[in-house]
Each structure stands twice: as structure tokens, then as C-alpha cells.
Design a binder for these strands. Structure first.
Lengths: 186, 186
DNA sequence: TAATTATTTCGATCTACATCGAATTAATTA
DNA sequence: TAATTAATTCGATGTAGATCGAAATAATTA
């Protein structure tokens, strides 16, 4: 079980009203299954299930005392989770298995013809940016291109090379030396 | 909505794999509903539902930008929850609505005859303690009782007053002055 | 040893909710 | 203005999980 699944299990353990009540009770003093069952008006089997869930994620601990099972709260575990939630670096990994390029791929597919050229130049900012970032990758970083070379590259996508060139500059994906000079990508 | 329900809603909001992924994505940068839907391979309506859940508990915030809804993560909220989980005083109130005396009442009922006397003296520590605490309430705190008076009071519960008396002392519910003196309850 | 008690496990049931598709609303573009 | 697009709402469906009762287990008491 990786970090993300563990975090999820943690929150699932805390996402039930009766389990929160159990934690509240155990915060005061250790209790047996039967005691909690009576207090919560639940069957012992139900409480036992809740406790094994909480124990699985390390939030409670049961010790066998004579022939009762006495459960107690492991506060450090809660503290640990609280700390983790306060660290910014906790969150990005939660999206690690997400297909973050899916939207860009879809936009690209929606606007591209089989030969790789564009059906139209998107009017919507969000989509235009995706297309422009795609086109910009054709320019080698650091290399200088003349306007003629730029137009040749852009013509593979759309005949309106002037618009593409202007937008690439506008979105700062392409740089131009002041006054009709060369173009380059950073 | 009181504090406990709010805490529960909070954890429920975090107890779904896709909602955690959304939080992970928004931790990197704000996104629109459609972008997230593509990334997660979910329908926009599903993502929209998740976002309104997260927004309801204040974890994300959506602003209308041209005609997109751009959502972003409210990290302070997460921080706030993390802090709260680290404070010991957070937990006891979660059990505030719990019927904490239910177990004692049940034990008492199980061992009592209609006239209030005991069927038997429980052999199990946990139950004996409940019965003894109940009996101890008949003694006024601070008042001194002779052994004769003590036996009279205990006889209302069980003929084996010697055992009851000994156990009350053992559990420190009744005090005795060293060497055959009077008894009292603190 | 037999009966009682506390707990857990298992199978069944019922509810909550994640997801989807269709309809609706609102904004934008053609 | 008509068509497109993004987002939300709503009703239907399927699944996960909370709860229960019964059976199994284990320890204790009579």
C-alpha cells in the first residue's frame, strides 16, 4: 500500500459518524467493545468491525485484559496525520497517477487533421494555448530563426502564419528581437 | 451545522479517491472542470459534483473566468483541519451526544431485582465496579458511618455485606480509619 | 466439565453515494 | 440571431459499506 492509498484509508476511517464517536469516547478513557456498543446503541459485532477498521490504519490499539479487549486511542497517529495535512508537499503526489496530459491531447486531437495540420485556429484562450504550446515545441530552444523559417514551420499547421506568429509572441512562447530581427524560443 | 457534523463532512469530503486526486491536481495549479474531467477520465458532471462537495466544506473555491469556472485549492482550510487534529481537546466533544451511562444502566438492570437488591454479586471486575459505584452513592460524602450503619445500608443490596464492604474498600470507594474505626466516603 | 460471557467472523440486507447521460442554463463565438 | 461550449442539475443505476443476526472462537466462571 503506497502513501496515497494509506491517506485515503485514513480519511475513510474518519468519515463515519459512529467511528468519530468511538474516537471521542476513547479520547477520554480506554473501553471494551461491549461498553462502546451499549453507549452507541449498536451491536457488538458492528463496533468490532469499526474498531478493526480503526486499528488497521493505526488509530486505535486493543490489548487483551483478562477476557475483555480494551481499546485505546493512539493520539500520536492523529497528530501525525494532522502534521502531514499541514505540509504542502503532501498534496501533489495524490495526483501522481492522474493522466495530466489528457486534456491537451484531446484538444490537439479535436483540432488536428490526419496530416497534423489544424482544422482551425481555436478562438478560446484555453484551447489556443494548448495548440500554441504544441507548435512551439518545433522550435529548438536557443536556435535563431529568420521570419522566413518561422513561416515555413508554421505553415505546416495553418495558412494564417501571421496569426500563429503573433499569438506565439503574445503568449511568450516565442521571443523576437526588437525591430524585425530573428525569433527564438527560450 | 455544529462542530462535530462539520468535522464529519470534512473527512467525508476527503474519503474518495477521485476527490483526493482533484485536490492533488489543484495543489499544482487552478483548473477548469473540463480539464479535470479529461485528466481523471470522468464526466464533467461527476467532477462538478465532486467540486461542489469540496466547495461546500471550503476546501476549494471556484471563480468564473470568461466562461470557464476555474477552481483552486484553499490550502489554509487544510492547514486549519490539520491543526485541529493535533489538539487533544478536539476529540472528547465528538462523543458529546453519546449515551455514556448506557453500559452502567444495563449492568445495573441485569443484576437488580425489582426491589433494588442484587440477584448476585458480579464476579467480573468490570461489572462489580459498576455495582459498587452505584451502592457507594448511598453514602453521603464526608459523613462518618459505624460498621453497624454500613452493614444496614449494604444489606438492602445483598446479605453478604462483608464482601460488599471489603470490595468497596478495595476499590477505594469507601475509606476506613485504621483499626476498626468508622467508614466514610470522600 | 458445562454454562456463561466477550469478541470476532461471516453472510445477508439495506442505505448512501459515485457515476453516468440527458436536460438545462449561461456565456461565447460564428 | 443561431450554433457551440462549459458547467450545473436531475433522475437512474450500480456498487461500496454500515448494520445486523447467527455462528464460531476463546476465555472465565460455576
Amino acid at each position: 500500500m503506497d502513501d496515497n492509498e494509506q491517506l485515503l484509508e485514513f480519511f475513510k476511517a474518519l468519515s463515519d459518524a459512529n467511528r468519530l464517536k468511538i474516537i471521542g469516547l476513547l479520547a477520554e478513557r480506554p473501553l471494551t467493545v461491549e461498553q462502546m456498543a451499549e453507549m452507541l446503541h449498536l451491536r457488538a459485532s458492528t463496533v468490532s468491525n469499526h474498531l478493526s477498521f480503526l486499528a488497521r490504519v493505526g488509530l486505535v490499539e486493543g490489548r487483551s485484559e483478562s477476557y475483555y479487549n480494551v481499546y485505546s486511542l493512539k493520539f500520536d497517529r492523529m497528530d501525525e496525520l494532522g502534521k502531514r495535512m499541514q505540509m504542502p508537499e503532501t498534496y501533489p503526489p495524490m495526483a501522481s497517477e492522474v493522466d495530466v496530459d489528457a486534456y491537451d491531447r484531446k484538444v490537439l486531437a479535436d483540432y488536428s487533421l490526419p496530416d497534423g495540420s489544424l482544422k482551425t485556429i481555436p478562438a478560446q484562450r484555453k484551447k489556443l494555448e494548448v495548440i500554441l504550446r504544441h507548435i512551439a515545441r518545433d522550435f529548438e530552444p536557443g536556435v535563431r530563426y529568420s521570419e522566413k523559417q518561422v513561416n515555413e514551420l508554421l505553415a505546416r499547421y495553418h495558412s494564417d502564419t501571421a496569426t500563429l506568429r503573433r499569438e506565439l509572441i503574445g503568449y511568450k512562447l516565442l521571443q523576437r528581437q526588437g525591430g524585425g530581427g530573428d525569433y527564438w524560443r527560450d
